[in-house]
Design a protein around this nucleic acid. Structure first.
Lengths: 193, 193
DNA sequence: CCGATTATAGAGACTCCTCTCTAATATTGT
DNA sequence: ACAATATTAGAGAGGAGTCTCTATAATCGG
């Protein structure tokens, strides 16, 4: 029906992930992506309406890939303490398996021009956010934790703490020490009490 | 001896802090700083050799201001558990008192073009880093924690965890909830065991 | 083989930023 | 008053990045 494409969307997003991991969101420019895959800049604009759309797509594809596996792990154990600890371990393991994507997630959506996203992109981001909040609220309820401070403590234990453990290494492009998964599990368990 | 200056170094760095807190390191451009204080760009170049030097100075001034108070708090209690918890509480309190500077510190030196800094700037950064590592090693020793995993756990408890507690709010430009200092102290105490 | 369709290809306008350079200006010591 | 000096003031060259626009190329159904 038409000319076959040499550069498809995922290939361009893969290049964007590499650039983001290496130089941060600022390094994700249309011309840098084009150069990485050997395409002219026009081909990148053929796939993405503009730089804002590219940033939104690379962020959302990455965060949705992570969340998919994270929800599965969190829901895999009926005991809330074990589920929380397993989710923390999973965050570290996933970061080890996907260091570039994990390095990208250490930035925030704001660094990927979230303020300028289209309605559709913003909606996707909100949806993911909503599901995470709901999962954490469920966990907090199962733990019998009450009040906003307790909810925040759960959120820190399950999400922010494992991210802290991997942040420095990923930013530096270094591999994670072997014991990091265990450390995440222990610390999260300690905070869930 | 000479014409008095309308724009001094601290005034320009203050503007850089505001810009970094608002738009991240990418927003700290020579022209943006000049515009903030109402100066022509030439006046900014009169104070700083280039953008790299400005980024280094704003990062170092901020991190050194924070560390100065942090060391005082950490060294203020001979009991290592209480000292660690107090340091965690202090990080939150300092962030509440200096939200823009704290928002800047949530980025890393790498985001402030650390790779391109002058020797002198790099040396200042290394010195601060070294002092922090030494303080944490002292704390770990006083706690009887042995091995790299235990050292990392102390470092997470005293540094990364309180930063996690303030990260989301500071990035969003929101004020910290009232209970955050208590939460930091509790979580750090829980991790120090 | 032809027309429709979908891509690639890349030139070029436009904007924003960095940095340099020259000129003008205000203050101090003599 | 005058020289010396530190600083403001701002024009403008040069580079990087975004985005638009036109031309060209490859594939498929008929």
């Amino acid at each position: 029906m038409a000319r076959p494409s040499r550069f498809d969307t995922d290939q361009l997003l893969d290049a964007a992930v590499r650039l983001a991991a290496e130089s941060g969101p600022a390094g994700v420019t249309m011309s840098a992506v084009a150069k990485q895959v050997g395409a002219p800049s026009g081909s990148v604009y053929h796939r993405f309406a503009g730089r804002t759309a590219l940033l939104a797509e690379v962020w959302l594809r990455t965060v949705e890939r992570f969340q998919e596996s994270w929800f599965a792990v969190l829901g895999g154990d009926p005991d809330p303490r074990r589920a929380g600890a397993a989710a923390a371990r999973h965050t570290v393991a996933w970061s080890r398996a996907h260091p570039q994507e994990a390095a990208l997630l250490l930035y925030g959506a704001a660094d990927f021009a979230r303020a300028e996203w289209s309605e559709e992109h913003a909606r996707r981001a909100d949806e993911g956010h909503r599901r995470v909040r709901a999962a954490l609220a469920g966990l907090a309820a199962a733990l019998g934790a009450e009040g906003p401070a307790a909810a925040e403590r759960v959120s820190v234990a399950v999400i922010d703490l494992p991210l802290s453990l991997v942040r420095r290494r990923l930013r530096a492009g270094e591999p994670l020490p072997a014991h990091t998964e265990d450390l995440a599990e222990e610390c999260t368990a300690a905070l869930l009490g």
